[in-house]
Write a protein that binds this DNA or RNA. Structure first.
Lengths: 228, 228
DNA sequence: GAGTGGTCTAGACCACCTC
DNA sequence: AGGTGGTCTAGACCACTCT
């Protein structure tokens, strides 16, 4: 029995994965499928929209819906706040603010934030701990323009969470890479210099204004995982 | 002027980011918003559903819609086929099948695929090239049960693409991490042993049956990037 | 029990694109 | 020019869960 849009999505996916509808072919129109399944067109539309979002089919007006030839699968990653991430592992979170000073940013950072290199930004180094052990070393450049007149006390509340609560829902981009530990990272994380570290870099804007650029150097063993 | 569901999503996002609706508070019901915006409830519903998917609000029947307190942002990653990824960089893709043999998998691989360790699997090593330079070193364990009676010619079509075309739309999980190059990886990729490499690991199933486990060791400089 | 989101329907109009 | 997906409407019923 075919019921709601999830059943329709499953049925369409079945026909595709069994090659009943091979890669590249046009599948029936929404209206035709609605008749076949005995439901409204909107229901079929919802199912096909989800499949298009997942990269399984490609849709264009007038051209119809095709099974994707080279399926660019899309996976969803969850980006939690660090404290949440540590606590989700059943560990206690702590952090130390190691440095906080005004500095002119290096050129790559300034350009990535779209600021002139001579504008001094706040530079903050924070070490996050899981059960007292180094978990991630955070180096952050922060646009002073977005801070209130009185500097918040970042030794009590991590910069990370202050931003989440006060400058929330900005847009930005995230990049993941691997790099050998720099001397500073090795010292702070307690690993050998050159050890392979997982690096997360994130730039954040709100309405064209640069907010922050942060680099997270994760302690060895860190993984980002997701389901497709 | 407030028009379609995208405008409504933008307006709600604006009220949240300006703290007009601070974190944790209940926002008006779909019906109330529909009246305010002068549209049907379904239109508001669509906008709020998208915001919930992005992790900006949390919705529960009867409880209503709340601004997320700790916004677990969700980012979408695109997972292309390697050939596509190389070509998107404007480079030409090539590959070499370095090894192909039946082997009993190591325990971690067997357990991750839910197979007994003594069952021999196909073990394949492939080096992918971008403009002739090492791009990613792929080591793959493949369940022979999913292969046809005659072994496909993996020197002509990469295993990667054969799977995409013949065992498409399976489910699985992906993990990203960093690791120092093993002796074999260093040799094949032409880097120093211990160099920091970006690692992608992926397990794939179809309907409870394990298909493949693949480990991709990317040449230095590789990044995974996305927009939030 | 009652209020909220989740979904479905039948119909309509529109935007876009291929033919 | 016509067919297709994209969206909106007005209404309805249902599922969940808080009180």
């Amino acid at each position: 029995m075919i019921g709601g849009w999830e059943d329709i999505r499953a049925e369409v996916l079945r026909r595709i994965s069994t090659q009943e509808w091979p890669a590249g072919v046009l599948i029936p129109t929404e209206e035709a499928l609605a008749q076949e399944f005995g439901c409204a067109r909107a229901t079929v539309s919802r199912a096909l929209r989800e499949l298009a979002q997942a990269g399984v089919v490609e849709r264009r007006r007038k051209a119809g819906t095709r099974v994707a030839v080279l399926p660019v699968r899309r996976a969803t990653l969850e980006i939690p706040v660090i404290r949440q991430e540590v606590q989700a592992r059943g560990q206690t979170h702590g952090f130390q603010l190691l440095r906080a000073e005004r500095l002119a940013p290096p050129v790559p950072v300034a350009s990535r934030l779209g600021l002139a290199a001579q504008d001094p930004l706040w530079y903050l180094e924070t070490l996050h701990l899981a059960d007292g052990q180094p978990f991630v070393f955070e180096t952050r450049w922060l646009n002073p323009a977005i801070l209130p007149a009185v500097m918040p006390d970042f030794t009590a509340l991590s910069v990370n969470e202050w931003l989440v609560k006060n400058v929330s829902y900005a847009s930005g981009d995230i990049a993941f890479s691997a790099a050998g530990a720099t001397a500073r990272e090795a010292e702070v994380l307690g690993v050998a210099a050159g050890a392979a570290l997982f690096i997360t870099e994130r730039s954040t804007w709100r309405a064209e204004a640069a907010i922050t650029f942060v680099r997270l150097a994760h302690a060895p063993g860190y993984r980002v995982q997701t389901v497709v």
